[in-house]
Simulated assay, not measured.
Amino acid sequence: MAQNPVTGAPVRLVVTDEDGTFLDLGGEDFSRERFSAVFARMRADGCRFAVATSNQSFQVKDVFGPLVPRVALATSNGAYVEAGGRRLRVSVAPDGGVERVLAAHAAHPEIPLCTVCADGAWVEPGADPDFVAEMTMYSHGMGRVESLADPRARQDVLMFWSRVPEGELARSIAVMREALGGAMDVVDSGCEDGWGYFDVVQRGVSKATGVRVLMEHWGISPEEVVAFGDAGNDVEMLRLAGAGYAMGNADEAVRAAADLVCAPCREQGVLRVLEQLWPE
């Protein structure tokens, strides 16, 4: 089997973030022919593949298409975990936490929100059309409600998404954290094209906890895991893995949390590493 470049253990699980990591920035695609070839070599070597993302499971399944039955999921920042078509865990946000988020949204309407539920996502009709289009790219199961307090948007809430001008990201995160008072966590999920993204997530739920569910399901140890990420919500996962790769486009804090740095996503950094681990 391929050897973990940090621990020397066999690589039994590769897990990657999507946006800014595995997928091309600003799109939902990757080099499919190239990946299919190395994916086949990984599978033959006994290595599993998982996607850990803040995006919804619907989006991941649409992106990976026919490969989906062999791709495990730790989506919605680890709140939804699936392997082999079976849900292994769905972590639902507590009502009190959801109430605090909705109150913060009402007090700060300049900070847009999208509610992510187990079976869909919701925005308000007054939301900026560009914001809605962006959130729909990550959900593929978007609906509209007059208010995020609508019962339909309160059914099995997993997390919330937001997007603000990049210069407003730090302030918006600080405002939300203060308003939530620890009832939910707020994590930076990256910047792109002048916009900053953050997620409001359940306390104690992260990509790392989602990946742990998969590891326990398959009997895989951290030393046997290779992970890739580019943003603040990837840090715990990178620290969990025996070899955590920060993308070349990641900021300094993410690089500091990683063991290694690979080429940026625009240069297909993840695929480059996989092809080194599983050469033709």
Results as ranks from 00 to 15, higher is better:
136 T>P: 01
73 L>P: 02
128 D>S: 13
260 L>Q: 08
56 Q>I: 00
24 D>T: 05
224 E>W: 08
253 A>W: 11
162 S>E: 09
133 A>V: 02
233 N>R: 10
28 E>A: 10
220 I>Y: 09
50 A>H: 09
221 S>Q: 14
152 R>K: 07
128 D>H: 11
76 S>T: 00
255 R>W: 10
131 F>Q: 05
262 C>F: 13
230 D>I: 01
235 V>M: 08
253 A>M: 12
63 V>R: 11
46 G>T: 09
174 A>C: 05
207 K>R: 09
50 A>W: 14
278 W>D: 07
105 H>K: 11
63 V>L: 14
68 V>K: 15
17 D>N: 09
200 V>F: 09
195 W>E: 11
221 S>D: 14
56 Q>M: 13
95 D>E: 13
251 D>S: 04
171 R>G: 05
45 D>T: 14
52 A>E: 10
190 G>V: 03
233 N>K: 10
16 T>Q: 04
206 S>T: 07
62 D>P: 02
190 G>A: 01
262 C>T: 05
25 L>P: 11
105 H>D: 09
223 E>S: 05
2 A>Y: 10
201 V>P: 00
144 R>G: 00
161 W>D: 06
192 E>M: 15
99 E>I: 08
67 L>S: 02
37 A>W: 08
137 M>R: 11
30 F>M: 00
125 P>L: 03
18 E>C: 15
277 L>E: 13
